[in-house]
Write a protein that binds this DNA or RNA. Structure first.
Lengths: 219, 219
DNA sequence: TGTACATCAGTGAACGCGCGTTCACTGATGTAC
DNA sequence: TGTACATCAGTGAACGCGCGTTCACTGATGTAC
């Protein structure tokens, strides 16, 4: 629940309807994919006429952007909450996986096939870097890596703009990127169904990937 | 080039037009995404009327399935060619990456957001397992891993249906799955643009992921 | 080589559909005095 | 508390559009004798 502030009844109502529109939108996405999202269909499902939605969203694009923003916000909050409750890097990863499994469409709206020509507004990319920041914190808290510096870590010494404000050694940067790509590799294949019929348990593969990075953990 | 066999001129013409339809389809997908694929638009671009395409494809769905099949076929051929020309596991991975970078839309049609309700026909999933088989071969050819068996490798001893006909030790199965997920993790984030603006070179991250698995290589 | 017939690529009209979006409007809710 | 006015949620008609798909057809290409 976000802070409601001091709202007039009308403002409260508006916010409520906006939320319901987004809920219906998610239902549609779950049923037929994001590309099938239709304002008219949402309106019909809510018992309203199509044009009524234009009171709440400037158009289809703004609705989709709002959904993407919400998805990012939800993921950032999830990861942050795990971090603040004392979870380690593996804990964050498992929280992320749980979040994705709970609603794969939300995951794919962020990390799935990009829409040609779509560019996320600044506030959305800001949330994305907030997630990365939490990840960096968790990596920095890990016992430090004793292996020799990788060539990629050396490369990162000079290419660390994305970690501005995080004075961590390059090995930590490397680890953060690595955990990031491994999480998405295992997760996106699992969620897209590329493991179905193969027989093994995707959760164990996921855990194995993390163990390889951080040493076996309690998960 | 696939074998043409003995074709009448009419058969040759048909095959040719089918190919052109698929080419235009890829162009459309590149321009506006797979969901925007329209038979009418393709026909118009080819200077034909819409219904004419029904001589070549039963409908939109069959066209998309043909595109997916072609994409899988192309990837399987690429990976197999690399393998047969003596490339090691890292070589396969780099071949796969090059294939994906050459045409990201083709990559995402296979590994991107799944279409709700769509189920690939058997011959397509067969090509997918062909790719996995090549990967297993390459993993088996690697110097064997001296580290203790992972819990996941133990799990794979009893869950190896997907590797039927490949009598390799569980550690190799584990390695094959690992390289598979790591490739897709680094690649899908790169192709979807999640690294843009971060400053580092995605190629080096990709290589680093492979080195971690196979030991530094010549790439 | 020529004729009769079969095959089949492509056309154009038509079907019903749902889309995003605009516009002028009605009627309910809230505000100011 | 009551009245006059402003705000604004939602309607219904209309716009132009493109979609997938069907159908009966024309006319060119290929085949059999």
């Amino acid at each position: 629940m976000a802070e409601t502030g001091t709202k007039t009844p009308r403002e409260r109502y508006r916010a409520q309807v906006r939320e319901e529109i987004k809920e219906r939108a998610w239902e549609q996405i779950a049923a037929a994919g994001a590309s099938a999202l239709s304002l008219n269909a949402i309106a019909k499902q809510m018992g309203m006429s199509g044009p009524a939605l234009y009171r709440y969203f400037a158009g289809r694009d703004e609705l989709i952007t709002a959904l993407i923003r919400d998805a990012y916000r939800s993921l950032a909050d999830t990861v942050r909450a795990a971090h603040e409750s004392g979870a380690d890097l593996a804990g964050l990863a498992h929280a992320l996986r749980a979040w994705a499994l709970a609603d794969p469409h939300r995951y794919f709206l962020i990390y799935g096939t990009p829409v040609p020509g779509y560019h996320a507004p600044d506030d959305v990319t800001l949330i994305a870097s907030e997630i990365m920041a939490t990840l960096l914190d968790a990596c920095a808290a890990l016992p430090s890596d004793r292996r020799p510096a990788t060539p990629f870590a050396v490369h990162l010494e000079d290419h660390r703009e994305w970690a501005d404000g995080h004075p961590v050694p390059p090995a930590v940067l490397h680890r953060a990127l690595t955990v990031w790509t491994r999480i998405h590799g295992a997760l996106s294949l699992e969620l897209a169904g590329h493991f179905t019929g193969m027989g093994f348990d995707p959760a164990l593969l996921f855990t194995a990937e993390l163990d390889d990075l951080t040493g076996p953990s309690a998960h």
